[in-house]
């Protein structure tokens, strides 16, 4: 890992800093807040924000992007950002914790978010409106649960599919009802 020029800091901003910064941006922090936390001015932050993704694009081994995902998921532990969070409602704050503690809660909302798009809704906004969870925290939860979910699928593929299908049915019904049904609901075999 050491000696990889693609991992050299950009204007002193390491990949670890950058991953945490992106997570915080996704959780509602402003660019100004993020730059301030990193101790740089906006032009410096914006160059790093432009060049880190370029490094990821240049890396055929996907090493940089994998590390980025890890650091993104560990944003809560980053010293420069640990005390810094966008203001959330008490209910939102509770859900932001819950989605990182409760795998089923995460999996259900992930399905809900996707189904919302199928009904013309902005799924990310629907999650914020109903649960107060910004997309950044959703992605952190995803990176926390991905390995576990992967193991679940390997251990019990059918069970996993069944649970996913049940969530899907639940939210399809919910969103369909809200829009007065599906276009082909009256067509039966």
């Amino acid at each position: 890992m050491s000696g990889n020029p693609l991992l050299e800091p950009i204007h002193g901003i390491t990949l670890e800093d950058y991953g945490a910064a992106c997570a915080r941006l996704g959780s509602g922090l402003s660019e100004d807040d993020v730059a301030k936390a990193l101790g740089v001015e906006l032009p410096v932050w914006q160059e790093a924000n432009l060049l880190w993704p370029e490094r990821m694009k240049q890396d055929a081994t996907f090493h940089i992007v994998t590390l980025f995902g890890q650091y993104f998921g560990q944003a809560d532990q980053h010293p420069k950002f640990s005390g810094l969070k966008a203001s959330a409602s008490p209910e939102g704050a509770g859900n932001i914790e819950k989605i990182k503690q409760d795998k089923d809660f995460y999996q259900e909302l992930e399905v809900a978010r996707q189904v919302a798009y199928d009904y013309g809704l902005d799924g990310a906004q629907w999650i914020v409106d109903n649960y107060g969870i910004p997309i950044g925290d959703f992605q952190i939860a995803a990176s926390l649960w991905n390995d576990q979910i992967h193991r679940d699928i390997q251990a019990d593929y059918a069970g996993y599919n069944q649970r996913q299908a049940a969530y899907q049915a639940k939210y399809q019904q919910l969103f369909a009802e809200k829009q007065g049904g599906n276009v082909a609901d009256d067509i039966e075999f």
Binding site: D118, L121, Q172, A184
Partner: peptide, 25 residues
């Protein structure tokens, strides 16, 4: 063009709903 993206996604959702309906039957 997010309004367009969401509208398209809703319409594709309905097409998929018909596809799933046929698959179930």
């Amino acid at each position: 063009k997010r309004a367009h993206i969401h509208m398209l996604s809703g319409l594709l959702g309905q097409i998929n709903q018909m596809r799933n309906k046929a698959n179930e039957v």
